[in-house]
Design a protein around this nucleic acid. Structure first.
Lengths: 356, 356
DNA sequence: TTGTAAGCGTTATCAA
DNA sequence: TTGATAACGCTTACAA
């Protein structure tokens, strides 16, 4: 037996399809008995309104799409996304939206967008994919950008990346470190750091600002900049590179806790003590950062709040609100135990380890 | 200007809507020039096929729904879900599906299902919600159940919960612990442990089996069973309860790493040393379990593989495959440092050995 | 190779 | 309080 439709109910109840529709959506406009009868029959037949057909006429799907720039398995490895989605989920729960995760389709976010039946999008960290935003705007789809340079007429949510990054680097420098590795998040495109855009750019600017206060610069030979995938695995791999640097860094400043944790793992495998042999700073303050050994010093950002704000803005755009606020959330240095003063590190008798 | 439709293209190109449709979906059936012209005009006008209308006729949405039993913010707090979704994401990426997270709508999963335009569902740990499965089956929607008692005619993916739980408890017992707290995952409904169903039941059965080997039982006064929300917060709260038990437990066996980690946090706040003052065992082996202090002894399950298997099965059902395998994945005891031998007895890391 | 026209299952409009 | 009927935007027999 095929799927039960509104027609089957109408026929069996001896009413029109309109009546059936009303019974579900606007019961007030029908006689109480009629509604009663229709509902009974619908229940009996196991009728469910077809959500696609409904969307067809209402133009609403009741779902919010989150555009993630990486393939799902990779993106989901980052607890940061999880926490962000928690915030989005709060609003979804409150307003009755479902949540769709939309990764690139065959490598293309644009294509993924075309195939997605959602009421609006939240874009996440579109570094190099500026064209995606233009595309969305051109298509007149409601959207909100997060962790990207703000555009006019499009609501955005960002954190104070530059200031946060600056504080991270200042803290390391104030602890006496001068040989420092900076781990940036790989942006997809190969680019010189001066050509970075968005979040990446702001964070580099922050690092640079702090370095300059100490008469240093990213261009100095004792400041090394590398890029890593934003995964634990990426952090592990980058650790090997860092080990090979000359001069050996005494501190590594990363743009992501998850990378820092990869470095933790690799360091433990290589029996290199953190922070004694190597100080580490993260960015994001994901929940586990306070639980790892040693607790990770990092830049705390209100991730969940960011998610909540984004979803809230998107809900407004979907409702037709013409406003387009640009929200900037604060960051904060969370000092824990993964950075120690460069001078106080215990003497290192193992020639394999980076000297303090 | 309203949204561009197939008609606009047809008019401007001087062809029928059929031709436009063909140009996108079956270019072979049209002359090369015609296709060329249509595509050009479509591009120029910024035309995107409406995915809802397409779904309307094809009956396909290209998205997989994952039914999560808790509100999104709560569910997303568990890295276990994340890892599971990574596996699902692998298949989504491979087969071009999007991923929809579907939490209860106004407290009701059934209602959420009704409103979800997806090609099929993966249900996750439906303990008490057996009716949801019946509902799905009655509606003839494709679905796969994960972490629930298997039903006939419905593909399922489970792990060997009972055996895993047994190994966890055996390990604790073999280390000499006799005053033990068991932390179950709160199931929603209040029920005596003997009335547990699904995963919960299997795990309890495993614990009980191990206890019986040592002449003990959950009913013993020195074995305490409590329930906790499956969150870090839940673990923190349950720790307070455990502290108050008499006799004081020397070990706590939890059904979830995330709960164990909550206990870690609370223990640290309360300055109770793990494992010296309290041994802890988890379940799941989420990625951070090896990174916390001390690394958590737990039952390892192939979570990502579970996700991959589920999505693969669902894809088959959606394709019309009538088979309905019941997959059971293995678990494994991951011995780390959160359990030590009780009292004066020497540490026993071999669960096969009898108690010292 | 291209066009006509009939759906798909709802909701919305307007009339009865 | 109800019912015809026309959208909604697309796909797909079937025809030409």
């Amino acid at each position: 037996m095929a799927k039960i439709t509104i027609k089957d109910i109408a026929k069996k109840a001896g009413v029109s399809t309109t009546a059936v529709s009303f019974a579900f959506n606007k019961p007030d406009r029908l006689g109480a008995e009629t509604v009663q009868k229709i509902l009974e029959i619908a229940d009996e037949l196991g009728y469910i309104p077809n959500p696609i057909a409904r969307s067809m006429t209402t133009g609403r799907t009741g779902t919010i799409g989150v555009l993630v720039p990486q393939p799902l398995p990779e993106a989901l490895q980052n607890p940061f996304l999880m926490e962000f989605l928690e915030g989005v989920g709060e609003i979804c729960t409150r307003d009755g939206y479902s949540l769709m995760l939309i990764p690139p389709l065959q490598g293309s976010l644009k294509r993924a967008i075309e195939y997605s039946a959602v009421d609006g999008f939240i874009t996440l960290g579109l570094e190099e994919e500026k064209s995606v935003m233009l595309f969305l705007r051109q298509m007149k789809l409601p959207f909100v950008v997060v962790d990207s340079d703000a555009m006019d007429e499009v609501p955005s949510v960002n954190i104070d990346d530059e200031f946060g990054a600056k504080k991270a680097m200042q803290y390391v420098l104030s602890n006496g470190h001068r040989n420092i590795a900076i781990v940036a998040i790989r942006s997809g495109k190969q680019a010189h750091y001066k050509d970075y855009v968005g979040t990446l750019r702001h964070r580099i600017l922050g690092y640079q600002a702090a370095l300059e206060e100490y008469g240093l610069s990213i261009d100095n030979p004792n400041i090394q900049l590398v890029e890593s995938d934003n995964t634990i695995q990426g952090g592990k791999q980058i650790f090997q590179k860092i080990l090979a640097f000359d001069p050996a860094p005494t501190a590594v400043v990363t743009m992501s806790d998850i990378i820092a944790i990869g470095i933790y793992e690799a360091a433990r495998d290589g029996e290199i003590a953190i922070p004694e042999a190597l100080s580490v700073v993260g960015f994001d303050d994901i929940p586990i950062s306070k639980l790892v050994c040693p607790p990770l010093t990092t830049i705390s950002q209100p991730t969940r709040e960011k998610g909540r704000n984004s979803a809230e803005l998107l809900a407004h755009v979907i409702e037709g609100d013409p406003e387009h606020p640009h929200i900037v959330l604060p960051t904060q240095l969370a000092i824990r135990d993964s950075v120690i003063s460069c001078g106080t590190a215990p003497e290192n008798k193992d020639p394999e380890l980076p000297a303090p």
